[in-house]
Design a protein around this nucleic acid. Structure first.
Lengths: 209, 209
DNA sequence: GTCTATATTCGGATAGAC
DNA sequence: GTCTATCCGAATATAGAC
């Protein structure tokens, strides 16, 4: 039993190393430009060995994205444990977290509408279940925030949810990061401001009347 | 002379048909997933004939994107002719226009950071000149709007500019469009609201104090 | 379950006739 | 300048030895 468990641990460790590499490459180049050869090279094993763990490139990417969703769910767990935080602050904390993941180069970009990956993800129950779970938890905060007017009640909740997902891989962040003239904190501050208060800059100026 | 001019016209017409097809395919699938075979099939000519007009897939895509920028510049010309419109309204009109182009399925998505297309575009003077021109014109409106406080002066102009570009190919729009439960007008209205006033919904509620 | 070597498919690009 | 036919490299996936 102990030996089996040990082997199992080794297996898990290797697979996690694989998924970490896939995750990084997905963030850097996206699914289409990432090659299985690169993944194998980065992990330091032969390509054929990869295919013993995962049966296709799509499954490889799906496993990495499931891992990201699991991290997101763990983060949501943490936040939900705090009862003293309002729904708007929770949503802002989530967006901040996604930006930190982006800055760390660990946020895979959304698959294009036609990608073979998209098909695979839609058919992957493990992935879809987690995506639905994340959406439902965010949906509860969105509903609360809209009920109290902290989030614009005129916006359909769907629009708010999609916007949060989209900001999790907003190209503005990588453009600013590539420009190199702002610190990570400044980037996050500006993007949080535009996400929640818009380019016009909402309620911070209390209208000099 | 007349015959030469006629031939020239035919050539232009064919090339424009090619670019229209490329533009549509770029919007639908992106550069990586678009194949030259598809383009040829859609135009109804042989692939080899395409390569008489354009020497590579990258050049083909670049020509299509230059065409988009030319349309944008023409739109900016129109707007600048109106002297009675404030800078914020001009920027909102621009964003609205980009969303209409997106809804028409004619807005190519931003090339990924590592795409071979990105390299080609950066080296393409015709493309870069137009991109700089668009940026400078938008930059003037942004500066004016920030000077009068209509756009948040705390945001670096660069952040505002990048955000406008990013909203021109925001995946939120295609998600809402795919959902099918909102009219094009509603989609544009909600996205304009989140872009300029944020999820919290800025100055429309005059703070019931 | 890891390796080397290879099969196979696909897509960008070209040759050469007309 | 358009076509048909083809080349060639790249990338996914697999065979088969150890």
């Amino acid at each position: 039993m102990a030996r089996l468990s040990f082997r199992e641990q080794m297996l898990r460790a290797r697979e996690d190393a694989i998924l970490a590499a896939v995750n990084r490459l997905l963030a850097e180049k996206g699914f289409d430009l990432m090659t299985v050869d690169e993944v194998a090279a980065e992990v330091g094993i032969a390509k054929a060995s990869l295919y013993k763990h995962f049966t296709s490139k799509e499954e490889l990417a799906a496993a990495a994205m499931i891992r990201v969703l699991d991290r997101a769910l763990a983060f949501l767990d943490e936040r939900q444990a705090r009862a003293d935080v309002g729904p708007l602050e929770q949503l802002q904390a989530v967006v901040r977290w996604t930006m930190e993941v982006q800055l760390a180069g660990e946020m895979p970009s959304l698959p294009a509408q036609n990608s073979s990956l998209r098909q695979a993800l839609l058919a992957n129950r493990d992935y879809m279940d987690r995506l639905v779970e994340v959406s439902e938890r965010l949906g509860r905060w969105i509903a609360e925030a809209q009920a109290s007017g902290l989030i614009d009640p005129a916006l359909p909740a769907e629009v708010v949810l999609y916007t949060l997902f989209a900001r999790a891989c907003d190209p503005v962040l990588s453009l600013l990061k590539a420009g190199g003239q702002y610190s990570d904190d400044e980037i996050i501050r500006h993007l949080l401001a535009t996400c929640f208060h818009g380019l016009c800059g909402g309620p911070r100026k209390p209208a000099a009347a």
